[in-house]
Design a binder for these strands. Structure first.
Lengths: 257, 257
DNA sequence: CGATACATTGAGCTGCCTCAATTGTCGTGG
DNA sequence: CCACGACAATTGAGGCAGCTCAATGTATCG
């Protein structure tokens, strides 16, 4: 056992109670901590995908580089996130991943996942939910890119990050730290850095959003959600009910544990 | 047993051999066929997500409706696809799903999935891969939306559909049926229908792509991929290797089957 | 103190949008 | 068989959101 819950275990406990075996299975994913400097790469597009990662500390992001030198950022990762779940099946990583801050990551081989599948159907359920959540985030970002203007894009993304942050660290208020440069934001949102700057100016002048250095301040969260057309359902997680069913199933035969 | 493989079983066999138990688990998902007319809804955004669907025949799509009346299409589904995998964890569907053609769908309760998790770690692995593939498709579309112009967007999407089609039905040549109106394409790509039309005209005049009614003709596939900046890695599936590992694991203890 | 990265602001351009009118295609019913 | 209506596609005209290029300002750090 561990003397103290790892980041991942803490994250999972948010979803369901874990017995000893399960906690150990998860802890196995965080056996090999590795400190990372800002901007350091975890892996690059097209490289063999034999390991995935738990992000234990710090922020990271995944992206695809374009031929013309630009890039599209696909995902922002926070502590407790598993990085590369979607690269589970292809032989090679589909995206590059790099750090946004200093931090700690723990690589683990793909086997650990299949091992979990074979051992705990409850953890499998949670993992599946997590993968689904990541997909939901990407779906929402697709909507963002396709059908919203710059103002809404920026606002919506800030709302999303704010909500995700307040889930992992509950003391997040209307002010919080967001270590993303305007260039990074532009690469997330499919805008130019210049236009992101103008958009921030606009929002600031209307008193809706203040940003200096990497601090964000949203004076009126409700009004801001309005601007963004933000709805939080896509980030709501309710694995509990699923697990109840799963447990019922296993008691009534056919199940594993 | 079934006298004839269901659509889904056929799809899964593409990934790995199935024993009798596994085939039955999968077949259970297609127990309740239901014929659907064109444009009929499978479910709507925000409605309770207690069942998912296998698409047995026909095409379908998922989308999000915006306040201003527009919509963003998130995914196009082909026969053999499981619809709603990403709605697995939230209590409510995050997207609406409707048919693009006539067809047949089979609803099944969420339990069936958790049941699979608890019974076959091999099927679980395949399911996880499928979910990953859907996410890869969405990631690619995100890149499309963020960093490509209309011409590339249209071309890239056509390439993607062409490839996906030729995987499920091998007799797809450089001509194929694509039952998507220009309005639908616009809603996929975040463009206006008018501009999609102009883009098709442009591509036609350059001899790169012909489209009339719902038939597509790509005279020179290689040249067309060039225009699109299309790379097919993100649609490559290699679950086989994963399963080998999974099997090895289970033989050496800790595993299930 | 200079170097480097990040942010702001202006000017001019363009890709895509909106609105609107026209044509083509199909299915339906008289 | 033709007339009709519904829908999909095309084409033109004009507008604007967001782009690029470039210059300047500002903070951080060795």
């Amino acid at each position: 056992m561990l003397d103290r819950d790892s980041c991942l275990v803490r994250n999972f406990k948010h979803y369901c109670a874990l017995d000893e075996t399960e906690a150990e299975l998860l802890a196995a994913l965080e056996k090999t901590p590795q400190t990372m400097s800002n901007a350091q790469m975890l892996w690059e597009e097209n490289h063999p995908a034999d390991t995935l990662c738990v992000l234990s500390e710090g922020w990271a992001y995944s992206y695809r580089s374009m031929d013309d030198g630009t890039r599209q950022i696909l995902n922002i990762f926070l502590p407790g996130d598993i990085i590369g779940l979607s690269d589970f099946s292809p032989r090679r990583h589909l995206t590059s991943v790099a750090m946004l801050t200093e931090g700690v990551v723990c690589r683990f081989p793909l086997n650990n996942l299949t091992n979990i599948f074979a051992t705990s159907s409850r953890l499998t359920t949670v993992l599946f939910s997590l993968a689904g959540q990541q997909q939901a985030i990407m779906a929402e970002r697709l909507v963002n890119m396709g059908r919203r203007n710059a103002r809404e894009k920026v606002a919506h993304f800030i709302c999303e990050m704010h909500l995700r942050l307040s889930k992992t660290c509950p003391n997040t208020s209307h002010q919080f730290h967001l270590p993303l440069s305007q260039q990074v934001l532009a690469d997330v949102l499919g805008l130019s850095a210049v236009h992101v700057s103008r958009t921030f100016s606009e929002l600031r002048e209307e008193g809706l959003l203040y940003r200096e250095r990497n601090r964000i301040d949203i004076p009126d969260l409700k009004a801001f959600h309005e601007v963004a057309g933000f709805s939080d359902i896509y980030l709501s997680d309710s694995v509990d009910e699923l697990l109840e069913r799963s447990d019922r199933d296993s008691h009534s035969g056919g199940g594993l544990r």
